[in-house]
Design a protein around this nucleic acid. Structure first.
Lengths: 208, 208, 208, 208
DNA sequence: GATGAATGAGACTTCATTCAT
DNA sequence: TATGAATGAAGTCTCATTCAT
């Protein structure tokens, strides 16, 4: 009762959350509409009162969940000057948000290449937007003499993005306990700190 | 004719190559058995003379293609001493192989998390094996005083693995031309060199 | 307000009219209950306060709209003696009514054979009643020596009924403009006159 | 075995025949794909090896069954001169064909107005083609002084077409035994002869 | 009574797998 | 062994009907 009146799109959110959970767990193609419905605790038909198709659920998911993050990130870093602080702010926000909304982390990992849904679709652009944002910061840092003159920013942005994905993957798999290995055992915050160090100083021991 | 008699599993290879190409292009779930058959230029029924199911094709693929790489990598780095050289050798081999077999690069990108096929399955272990190989090298480097004492190797290995994935993604997307953006414009070799620099010295300008 | 209180079954009529319009436009099976509700400007649930099911709406429609016509026709021709006048009266009434209520014409065209609803159902009997009425008139005309002795009345009634359907179809299609062809271009009254001539004298030039 | 090799599109024909039977019995929208499959004694999936959708089955049906008749009719009447003979030939062929292929008669009765499939679709043109063919013959008859000068050919063609439909409807319903009434009891050939008489001399007793 | 969101049975269609040739 | 038509389980989606408000 309470929740319902609190937000007239309560069910819509329920469905999006359920979809996110299942898309991430099994992948888009292997997720059954019936699974999303069961997870959301509504009838299958109800999904179609809120979204015209399974595909539109995925697109809405990207648009609303992921798009929101980017907008927040952009607002935040616009108030910062130092490129280092900006990158740090980005990671800090991403990590914080992911800690808050576990499934958000997982959407970061959905394979953006495979599905033809994404290509020729503006949704992927929100991801590209994020990636290009990193490149801008790196370029700015080069101009200000903070980053190496010979830093290849086009490569670096993918490295940073990939690295972030890799860490999240570890974290997600670690908690899902699906894989038992030394590989996956760490806290997200500790990982973010380690990541910062790697990009700050590389892997090498300080030369004297 | 000739080829056929040369190797009694000629068709098997044909099918595996076709499967790799299509799995990578459309993802495992979105690939139709008929597509694999068409790509391999055999009848659908023929596939089932060589593999008991579609899933087994994927497993064989990982096992033979990817597994082969790991074995080669292990052999190669066992002859090296310096951890830096080992990492460099790994990347060099991966890059070279990917240049040679374009689709191999793409399999690297198949979402290893999504498919429930992979979890609870020994196949993922070949990937984990690769990732853990990196950790071993990093640990060795720490012991030898080459890498920072405070390097979190569990994080670092995922960062390196993710970074490699990110670069490959750029490369693959770049050539598919599906996405137009500053994001994806570079050669694989240049990228590998840039990656090395990032991990060697970080992003920062050398302090004097 | 006024209309509402004027007739406690005001909504019932609204719904029947809306149903007729949509059944005719799209056919019974392809008409959605939601379309009827929208056309009637009531909520879907409201329909079920007046009719127990979609099917019952169709049956009520036939019964009340079509049945009314037949009753009127029967009353009218009971006051006539000459079979020719009777047939003429029938056509005249049908044409006049169709001009007044466009959709009534269309219901005449609903395929009475297709829907299993109609078979084993008394509704079709109102149509059969109409058809048999024609036969009775023809038989009467034969007895009175007005129609040919060798006229096969069982065939003739279907011919007349079919002819009337054909003309209405032309008229309806003509106005819907859906089909562009010489086929469909004429006024209903002119058509009725032509129909009369055909049945009066056949197609042939008068022999002298 | 035998049948199969006799015609490589044996199954296709089976399916078309089954579809015709069921479409006619229940109407297009109320026919389930599973019913067609059952009638054809093949699996549901098999239908989709021959037709891309249920709708395409209907279109193929019209095109091949109905289209074939029109072509044959056109060829036949092109060898005749007298408009009366032409009309007679048309009816004779239609009747003969319908006697041979019972279901063909029924397709003649499928509601050509309801389904939006037919409008804006060339299929309906085959029906219109048939109807216009009648008009041409009537016009020719007028020019040659065989038919009445004041015959409205646009009306007459619909009357003739409607009449033919009416007769076929009687015949079909008669055999289906679904409706018990004096209405439907006659042989097709006798009906055709009666039809000819009606159009030749009208309903009226010969005036002396 | 009126509403329209929720429901779920059942429709069309896909596609991995089988099997007769 | 190779083929590809046939199969049918299972998927996505529709829509008549119900029911809480």
């Amino acid at each position: 009762m309470f929740k319902k009146s609190e937000d007239k799109s309560y069910k819509r959110t329920l469905i999006l959350d359920a979809a996110m959970k299942t898309f991430v767990k099994r992948g888009y193609s292997d997720t059954r509409v019936s699974e999303i419905a069961a997870e959301a605790k509504v009838a299958e038909g109800t999904l179609y009162n809120y979204f015209p198709s399974k595909e539109e659920i995925l697109l809405a998911l990207f648009d609303e969940k992921w798009g929101g993050i980017i907008d927040e990130i952009k607002k935040k870093i616009s108030r910062l000057n130092n490129p280092n602080d900006k990158l740090k702010a980005i990671f800090s926000m991403v990590v914080t948000m992911f800690k808050k909304d576990r499934h958000l982390a997982e959407i970061f990992l959905i394979d953006i290449k495979q599905s033809s849904i994404f290509l020729n679709n503006y949704t992927i652009n929100r991801v590209v937007e994020f990636i290009d944002l990193i490149e801008e910061i790196l370029e700015e840092g080069k101009k200000k003499g903070i980053y190496r003159k010979n830093l290849d920013t086009r490569v670096a942005k993918m490295v940073i993005f990939g690295a972030a994905q890799g860490i999240l993957l570890s974290w997600v798999l670690n908690e899902s306990k699906a894989v038992k290995s030394r590989t996956f055992q760490f806290s997200l915050f500790r990982a973010a700190r380690a990541l910062k160090n790697i990009f700050k100083s590389g892997l090498m021991e300080e030369r004297r």
